[in-house]
Design a protein around this nucleic acid. Structure first.
Lengths: 115, 115
DNA sequence: AGCATATCTAACCGATCAGTTAGCTAACCG
DNA sequence: CGGTTAGCTAACTGATCGGTTAGATATGCT
């Protein structure tokens, strides 16, 4: 089963190396070698990370002589933001209204209170 | 190396089953059995997913007789939203408001000079 | 006490992941 | 042309993942 776009996006940015690469790309396009420089990691390893990011649509690649510059494509993150914000809103309401939680505890009866 | 909190959160919600569980929990607390019901998956499999979610701080567990009800804890998602919105804002400014052209010119210029 | 229910742990399995090294291809430059 | 540089693929490895079955544990019911 091939994963949905949202899962692709989220698992792509779940890796700290890939997040660092994306943040680097906010400063503008960069070559593979430039992207690899800050990491103690082989070039092929970076290539694999780039492939994951490209597969998730988070970057796109150009061609400039021997270089294959990477460019940020932040569009898929929109969906991710949308999904997560559902829960951010839940967080706002549920933490701002703690009594809702209390109601729930009381509703399941006083036996739950022990322990 | 143990992963940072943000990576924990993002990889936890990168799985569709776990996202479905979280969405279910927006309707209120639920037992493991209730959470497992919609899935064609064994109970221990669900337990593992719950453990991942708990490890990421996205749910907490109570105790009510034999039940160990799960409750949504959306707080860690705040950090995730914060991180992703950095890029959402990049998307807004560079694609919608089109200084993208300028950025790209600067970027190719920079890569041309480096090496 | 004895049984049923809810949940978890342990052990295992196949697939995927994140990294490596070695070697290939393509473009530039002398 | 030959050599250098950038990037990629292939093949391998150890770790982690997502699931399973079997069995342990804890609580409630009669």
């Amino acid at each position: 089963m091939q994963p949905d776009q949202l899962s692709l996006t989220l698992s792509a940015i779940a890796d700290p190396t890939r997040r660092a690469i994306l943040m680097r790309l906010m400063d503008g396009e960069a070559s593979v070698k430039e992207l690899a420089a800050p990491f103690e990691m082989s070039i092929p390893a970076i290539c694999k990370h780039l492939k994951v990011l490209e597969g998730a649509g988070l970057i796109s690649r150009g061609r400039n002589a021997q270089l294959r510059p990477c460019r940020l494509e932040a569009q898929p993150l929109r969906e991710a933001v949308g999904w997560i914000e559902e829960f951010a809103s839940f967080w706002d309401t549920s933490l701002n209204r703690l009594d809702g939680l209390l109601e729930r505890l009381q509703a399941t009866d006083a036996t739950a209170k022990k322990n």
